[in-house]
Design a protein around this nucleic acid. Structure first.
Lengths: 151, 151
DNA sequence: CGATGTTGTAACTATTGACATTACAACACG
DNA sequence: CGTGTTGTAATGTCAATAGTTACAACATCG
């Protein structure tokens, strides 16, 4: 029914990695405290982000960092990395009756529109990059912009 | 993770009600056979569609029919009627740590973008009306258009 | 090189929500 | 009135997420 919280946890994780870069070692435990979930959940998500080439994770020594320019990573990339809808956002009932003219054709009638709806959502996510999010967090934290990294 | 199959079942139901109008009594059992689910599932969905003012259901005598002009009912209306996301498509982790600058502000940073993504999807669904779907089903069933109702 | 802290991952549990199913009272209409 | 249907509650089943424990593999520091 809803999209997993993995997605927002992943974004939260990336925000934390950036925010505390050079300030704290961003271990799974550290991030877990900020998100308020079990560290294993963070490790699992870090793995998915790693597989998507978005972060580097240091086994042993601990901590994670971005492995891409944040202006080249969109919310969509993060979404795809962790929330594998395996393609489909909408969930079709499995076995419509092929002997019925409606059951036989529902897919042909509907699929196109459902696809478009999903794509509209995904395209919207593609509009936002991590660097925008970092900037926004910074703006919220330091309204004057004094301590912003971007001066 | 995914959107309930209730949505596609509901559309299927509406297609069936229209397709068999005047030809068969569209009881929950009849529709259930086309969709291939339990009749109770159809009754529940018919209730939700009724509450949304989209259909009339005849208790006792049986059957259901559209109570609105199909050109005024969009996929979005159906979606809202049966798949109560209670607002949110995306699912936020519950209790981010307020003591952490990231945990304290994730919502402020992210909400706007998530909302926009959901709205993009919903707006896409608003573009399609039931009458378009009926027409499309008819076109698929009767490619020549001979038996189409719209001659 | 060994102690320490961390990741990577498996295994198990708890919880949640959708859907299936059974059952039956309320109801409409011939 | 009898039949077939809806409306709805109660219960069962199943899949997926997330929580938790546990531990081997690994990196780094002293």
């Amino acid at each position: 029914m809803k999209i997993t919280s993995r997605f927002t946890v992943a974004v939260h994780t990336l925000l934390a990695i950036h925010r505390f870069e050079g300030k704290s070692k961003t271990t799974s435990e550290f991030i877990a405290k900020s998100v308020n979930v079990n560290p294993v959940v963070i490790r699992r998500i870090l793995q998915m982000l790693k597989n998507a080439g978005i972060v580097e994770v240091r086994a042993g020594s601990g901590g994670a960092e971005l492995s891409k320019d944040p202006s080249s990573v969109t919310l969509y990339d993060v979404f795809k990395a962790v929330d594998s809808l395996e393609g489909e956002l909408f969930h079709f009932h499995e076995n419509p009756n092929e002997a019925c003219p409606v059951g036989k054709n529902v897919h042909k009638v509907l699929d196109e529109y459902l696809e478009n709806a999903q794509k509209a959502m995904e395209n919207e996510l593609k509009k936002t990059t991590l660097s925008e999010l970092f900037q926004k967090l910074s703006d919220i934290e330091f309204p004057g912009g004094k301590t912003s990294k971007n001066i």
